[in-house]
Design a protein around this nucleic acid. Structure first.
Length: 448
DNA sequence: CGCATACGCGCC
DNA sequence: AAACGGCGCGTTTGCG
């Protein structure tokens, strides 16, 4: 079921998720070290039981509609052909649009589009990323077709073509979940990565539409609502945030009301949106610069809002400061389960690497506990499916995407299975606030 | 030719 | 120059 080498790999990863240290290769030595570090429980109760579940998910795979993908690929190919012709015409010649270096040359040297204020890359070429190109949109007619080309080429080359390539003869795709690939405790997914399938816009929908339930089955998605903020509320013990989740309030709206000093009923959608970015960014250690960029505020105002946020949620501020202080002292941080991340740069003499390590220090306990929670949920759900004798046939766990689980469930048990899965997820871990799971059912991934 | 790097970008 | 945490991957480019 799980061999010794796999156990060794898991133990070494738990002891050193960033791969910085020389570690024993002997399992009993490693297990002894796990006990010394307080890591044996997550090894025994989370990582070991999870491994065979991930293997089974790979074996089952997720069905993709190959006929549909072929048609979509052809459509996108035609659109690309048209865009390439248009771009060459506007550029006055052919070049490799996929080469940022060549593109930079065409835009800023050949076409002489003004480059004042445009960032330079370390190679000396001007940046050509979406953000830069968007600024240039009104300066030259070539920009819009380039942006369209970029978007479509990305989707075709990263998703449509590889999914067709990697599907088996039954049209199922078998991603590998990597259990030892991250520094925080999250899983990653590769060959193909099914944790970064597009979701935004029409094109996102078109890709997700390709992931379909088998005949007689439906896809069911279950996602944790704001799991990271609930973890933050718990670890920081912030009374305002805890009460908000206990009362099932709209947390972004509440934050907006606090930082704008406005009553709840006066919160506009713009205010809520800025507050959402703030809530989101705080667990990453976002500064005024980054907040200004993503919110459209100027840096001074952005700083005011961040300061206001921290005075409204003072316990969050304190927890972050305490966590950084502890990291400096110990050289590592740990989440509530004892999962650790070592931060060798936390005491770096300059700010360059120290600041980076500080942000990692305040994020890992959040991201890493959320990761533990969904792993525990997967173990519980797998046990429930087994007990109901549904595993492998009636109900299959297919995908895990950080705060979301996706299943393929036979239609005749859907009504019974859905509340069971939700309940296992919501009761997987006891936080200071309830865990909430939203769910949706459909024929394909675009509609759930 | 394979491999590493730079750049860019998809997701949570 | 960058300035926000965690990933995987496609293409280009330069190097051995």
């Amino acid at each position: 079921m799980i061999n010794e080498n796999k156990k060794i790999e898991l133990a070494q990863w738990l002891l050193d998720p960033d791969g910085q240290k020389a570690l024993p290769k002997n399992l009993s030595l490693l297990e002894h070290r796990l006990k010394e570090e307080g890591l044996f429980e997550i090894y025994q109760d989370i990582e070991l039981p999870l491994a065979p579940i991930l293997d089974e998910m790979r074996e089952i795979g997720v069905k993709v509609d190959l006929g549909y993908l072929e048609k979509l690929g052809k459509e996108l190919g035609k659109e690309l052909d048209g865009l390439v012709k248009e771009i060459y015409k506007l550029a006055g010649g052919e070049f490799n649009i996929n080469s940022p270096k060549q593109l930079s040359g065409v835009l800023f040297a050949k076409l002489e589009i003004g480059s004042e204020g445009i960032l330079k890359r370390k190679t000396g070429a001007f940046a050509t990323d979406v953000e830069t190109l968007t600024v240039l949109k009104d300066r030259h007619p070539i920009i819009k077709p380039i942006l369209s080309y970029r978007e479509i080429f990305k989707v075709k080359s990263t998703y449509v073509d590889p999914l067709r390539e990697l599907a088996d003869k039954n049209g199922r795709v078998h991603t590998t979940y990597v259990q030892t690939g991250t520094a925080t405790g999250r899983l990653s997914s590769r060959d193909p990565n099914l944790q970064n399938i597009p979701i935004v816009g029409e094109l996102g929908k078109k890709i997700r539409r390709a992931f379909a339930a088998g005949k007689g089955y439906s896809l069911a998605a279950f996602d944790y609502s704001q799991i990271e903020l609930r973890v933050l509320a718990t670890v920081s013990n912030d009374p305002t945030m805890i009460q908000a989740f206990k009362d099932d309030l709209d947390i972004h709206k509440l934050t907006a009301s606090k930082v704008y000093n406005a009553p709840l009923e006066k919160v506009t959608s713009e205010m809520r949106s800025a507050a959402k970015t703030l809530n989101f960014g705080v667990s990453y250690g976002m500064g005024p610069q980054a907040f200004a960029k993503t919110s459209g505020l100027n840096v001074a105002d952005a700083k005011k809002f961040i300061d206001e946020y921290y005075s409204d949620f003072a316990a969050v501020k304190k927890w972050q400061q305490d966590t950084i202080a502890a990291a400096r002292k110990n050289g590592h941080v740990a989440n509530l389960n004892g999962r650790k991340r070592w931060l060798p740069n936390i005491n770096w003499p300059g700010r360059r690497y120290a600041a980076e390590a500080e942000r990692a220090a305040i994020n890992m306990p959040i991201q890493g506990l959320a990761a533990d929670i969904i792993k525990i949920a997967m173990i519980r759900v797998a046990a429930t499916l087994k007990k109901k004798k549904w595993s492998g046939e009636e109900a299959r766990m297919l995908l895990t995407i950080h705060d979301e689980l996706i299943f393929e469930i036979k239609d005749d048990i859907l009504k019974e299975a859905t509340p069971l899965i939700r309940s296992e997820m919501e009761n997987a871990y006891k936080l200071a606030v309830p865990l909430r799971v939203d769910s949706a059912v459909g024929d394909n991934w675009a509609v759930i």
